[in-house]
């Protein structure tokens, strides 16, 4: 029997956005429910990044309304509910940071300004690294890791707060095919076994098709939305296991 696990996580109502006279998003209506997996595909300049920024409240629509967890996204304060995985290409390979420092930084948005890092925070970071099997890399510099290992580090950072919404912004750009495949398997495993909603921007249509089907739920101008709805996974299948490694 289906359980009540399908609250609205993101709700876009008649959303329009433009840069000057250039209309990027026009009258978009879309709802993402709890535990949905939404794949967003589009060419460069189609408005994918703009859409993500609107969803997380970094920019406001010109008209329309964006709600996050039932609240106006601009006023949304419970930021620890959102996990964010950037593009691998965004990483400066010379940046002097260890894996442990990067994973720990996932807690910094939850920690109030001026609050120090405590011993229990280090333990939480250790747990997150163990969940993604990267604990042996803790003292390595992130720029020295392979693309796949770096993405596991970013996943561990994003998951350290046990978010309800995980946003992945082209996470497989610049990674070889075999690593991309393994990364998708890991993400799928996380979707099937964790009480989380996923929004994943990707250029990889093949990978999206294999998990989300070949028919987009919505075609909005140049952006395609592929969705695996939460009702396709029964709520009683959710395992809130701590270990995530697939």
């Amino acid at each position: 029997m289906e359980q009540p696990c399908h609250q609205d996580i993101v709700n876009l109502e008649d959303v329009c956005f433009s840069y000057g006279n250039h209309q990027v998003i026009q009258h978009l209506n879309f709802t993402i429910k709890e535990r949905d997996f939404v794949g967003v595909i589009g060419s460069n300049g189609a408005g994918k990044s703009t859409l993500l920024k609107m969803i997380v409240g970094l920019i406001q629509p010109k008209t329309g309304r964006v709600e996050l967890f039932g609240k106006n996204s601009a006023q949304f304060k419970e930021r620890e509910k959102i996990g964010y995985v950037p593009q691998k290409n965004a990483l400066n390979p010379l940046f002097p940071a260890t894996v442990k420092e990067v994973v720990l930084s996932g807690l910094y948005s939850r920690k109030k300004i001026l609050r120090r890092i405590h011993k229990q925070d280090l333990e939480v970071a250790q747990d997150a690294m163990e969940s993604f099997s990267i604990e042996h890399l803790a003292d390595r510099k992130i720029g020295q890791l392979s693309g796949g290992q770096q993405q596991r580090v970013f996943l561990a950072r994003a998951m350290i707060n046990k978010p309800k919404l995980l946003i992945l912004d082209e996470p497989t750009v610049g990674i070889d095919e075999d690593t991309q495949r393994k990364f998708f398997q890991l993400i799928q495993h996380m979707h099937q076994h964790h009480d989380m909603t996923f929004i994943m921007v990707s250029h990889d249509i093949e990978a999206m098709h294999s998990y989300l089907g070949s028919k987009p739920q919505l075609v909005h101008d140049q952006i395609l939305f592929f969705v695996k709805h939460s009702h396709e996974i029964h709520c009683d299948e959710i395992t809130l296991a701590h270990g995530i490694t697939s």
Binding site: R79, F95, L114
Partner: peptide, 22 residues
């Protein structure tokens, strides 16, 4: 000293810092 963790995250990944509400 007081803003070390915010400075680190903003310098390392400005987008993640913004999403995190810093």
């Amino acid at each position: 000293f007081l803003f070390y963790k915010e400075l680190f995250l903003i310098t390392f990944d400005e987008d993640a810092a913004a999403v995190g509400g810093l």
